[in-house]
Simulated scan of single mutants.
Amino acid sequence: MSSSTKSASAAYPPIPYSTAPAPAPAGYPMRSDAGDQNPARVPVETKTKGDGFWKGCCAALCCCCMLDACF
């Protein structure tokens, strides 16, 4: 009984390996090497959002209790 074996490289060709960096996804902001290295930054303003979240939670909880009581 004879068996023929092939080398693993013939069955699985080598995967091409690249050392180049992968391109950025479309729409991803890129850094410009030709432009200003330290652009002017826009000041950040923070605002309080109020208590709308808690009012909504209480209203939803009240509705659930009323529906549970009615049905």
Rank of each mutant, 00 (worst) to 15 (best):
A59I: 08
A34S: 08
V44T: 08
D68I: 13
C63R: 04
P29H: 00
T48L: 11
G52D: 05
L61R: 02
Y12R: 14
A20G: 02
K47S: 05
Y28R: 02
C70M: 12
M30T: 13
T5D: 15
W54P: 00
K55H: 10
T19S: 13
P16W: 09
D36T: 02
A34I: 15
P23E: 10
K6I: 13
I15Y: 04
V42R: 10
D33Y: 12
T5Y: 15
C63W: 14
T19K: 12
C70Q: 11
G52K: 02
P25T: 00
R41S: 07
P16T: 08
S4K: 10
C62L: 15
M1S: 03
P21Y: 00
S9H: 05
M66I: 15
P16I: 13
S18I: 05
G27T: 00
Y17F: 15
A26F: 08
T19Y: 10
C62I: 10
Q37E: 13
P29S: 05
S7N: 05
C63V: 15
G27P: 00
D36N: 03
A10H: 10
T5L: 14
K49S: 09
F53L: 05
P23A: 13
N38Y: 15
C57T: 04
C58E: 08
M1G: 06
S3Y: 08
S9K: 06
W54N: 03
C63T: 14
P21L: 11
P29I: 01
S4E: 13
K47E: 09
K55A: 12
A8W: 10
S7P: 12
L67T: 04
D33H: 12
P23R: 05
C70F: 13
G50P: 00
A40N: 05
S18W: 03
A34D: 14
A59L: 08
A20N: 11
T19F: 12
A11K: 08
S18T: 09
P43S: 09
P16C: 05
A24C: 01
C64I: 15
P13C: 06
C63D: 09
E45D: 09
G52A: 04
R31G: 06
F71Q: 05
P21Q: 11
E45Q: 01
A60C: 07
M30P: 00
K55G: 13
P14R: 11
A10E: 12
C64H: 13
A24S: 03
G27Y: 00
F71G: 09
W54G: 03
D68F: 15
T48G: 12
T46W: 14
I15Q: 13
P39H: 06
A8G: 01
S18D: 11
R41K: 14
A69N: 14
E45F: 09
A34E: 11
T46K: 08
Y28W: 06
C57D: 04
C62W: 06
P13L: 02
P39Y: 04
A40L: 11
A24Q: 05
E45R: 07
S2K: 10
A59K: 05
A11E: 06
C58N: 01
P16L: 05
T46P: 03
T48P: 08
T19C: 06
